[in-house]
Design a protein around this nucleic acid. Structure first.
Length: 351
DNA sequence: TAGCATGATTGACC
DNA sequence: GGTCAATCATGCTA
């Protein structure tokens, strides 16, 4: 069809003034009678238009008849040209699309959580980050931690299985459509560009399905993560030894139970808890002691006695009773902090 | 299971 | 930013 349009353009004859067909007909291959030719073309077009309404057998027979029709090469050329023009007109509309920001976000998140990309410890980094965010130290949380990793691993596995399925389905469907198009190209004009475009459409469709999968996976990870965080937020009583250490400090510094930052750090280390937990504990203890001194009296006496014994034994060794890490030692009430000693005194009186 | 104990959170205050 | 005070939520125990 390279030269046909140019050759027949000025004649203005043929199907809808199409030069290719006119050329073909003028070559003498399309009969001699103009009305008869028109009738022929009309018949062929009608058959093509209605071929899909017929049964498979009828359609096959019709296809064969059309393939053998004397007008077929001419019609084929014409349709090829129309197709070419159509493709040219729509080509601009489907240029390379920019990467979808939503998809990029999902990909980044799945990568960060260790779901997509190479396996990197089943998201232990995320679990550790979650632990750090809540101030936990992970002492007896290893079970939860491994549970988190196991569940994340499950999500990862499901994600990859589904992704593989989609990719396989996409490839199969693409191959199927390409075969169909190749088959159809025998009866209708289908250019390689059109096949390429069709493949692009299929891939875009499957990409949107993949995006849904990614979205669902992200949601699952978020839910898992929030559950993990919630679980860690659960209150756990400190162990007995930790409470002992904290109480010891509290009652030995009852006149000024405000540990310095260094003291808090040391206590946190000793008790295997965080500094903020130490602060919480002291905050709660001060208030509760102040509110109900009577109730704490026995406890106070016990720790006071214990401290006295310690002090005696320490002084026997020529040292001071106060811990070196307790700058706010007893009797130092000059920082504007209220002394709880007075509360104890009141309680003693009330007792 | 109710009631108490206790760690954590939150908002106000300095 | 640290603390207080109130409150919540959960653990523990009788």
């Amino acid at each position: 069809m390279d030269e046909q349009p140019r050759l027949m353009h000025s004649h203005g004859v043929g199907m809808a003034g199409h030069p290719g067909l006119a050329q073909h007909m003028q070559d003498g291959t399309a009969g001699t009678d103009g009305e008869g030719r028109k009738q022929d073309i009309g018949d062929i077009l009608q058959q093509i238009m209605t071929i899909t309404d017929q049964s498979l057998d009828e359609a096959q027979a019709r296809k064969h008849a059309l393939n053998c029709h004397r007008m077929k090469p001419a019609l084929f050329n014409v349709l090829c040209e129309i197709k070419e023009k159509t493709v040219l007109s729509i080509r601009g509309a489907q240029e390379e699309e920019p990467p979808d920001p939503q998809l990029m976000r999902l990909d980044n998140m799945l990568l960060a959580e260790g779901v997509a990309g190479p396996e990197k410890g089943g998201g232990s980094a995320a679990a550790a980050a979650a632990a750090a965010a809540t101030g936990g130290i992970g002492a007896d949380n290893s079970a939860e931690h491994s549970d988190y990793r196991a569940k994340l691993s499950q999500i990862r596995q499901i994600y990859h299985t589904e992704l593989e399925k989609y990719e396989q389905a996409c490839n199969e469907f693409t191959t199927h459509v390409m075969n169909l198009l190749r088959e159809q190209s025998r009866t209708r004009p289908i250019s390689p560009k059109e096949i390429e475009r069709m493949v692009g459409i299929i891939h875009r469709k499957f990409s949107s399905i993949q995006m849904q999968l990614k979205q669902s996976t992200c949601e699952a990870v978020m839910i898992l993560r929030s559950r993990f965080l919630d679980a860690r937020r659960k209150r756990r009583n400190f162990n007995k030894q930790a409470t002992e250490i904290l109480n010891e400090y509290f009652y030995s510094h009852l006149s000024n139970p405000y540990p310095s930052e260094e003291a808090k750090e040391e206590l946190a280390k000793k008790c295997a808890i965080t500094v903020s937990q130490v602060s919480n504990w002291f905050g709660n203890k001060r208030i509760r002691y102040k509110k109900n001194i009577g109730k704490f009296q026995e406890e106070a006496n016990m720790y006071a006695a214990r401290t006295a014994v310690n002090a005696t034994s320490v002084s026997a060794h020529g040292s001071q009773a106060n811990s070196p890490s307790t700058p706010n030692s007893a009797g130092d009430c000059s920082e504007g902090k209220r002394s709880l000693l007075s509360y104890r005194d009141f309680a003693t009186v009330l007792d």
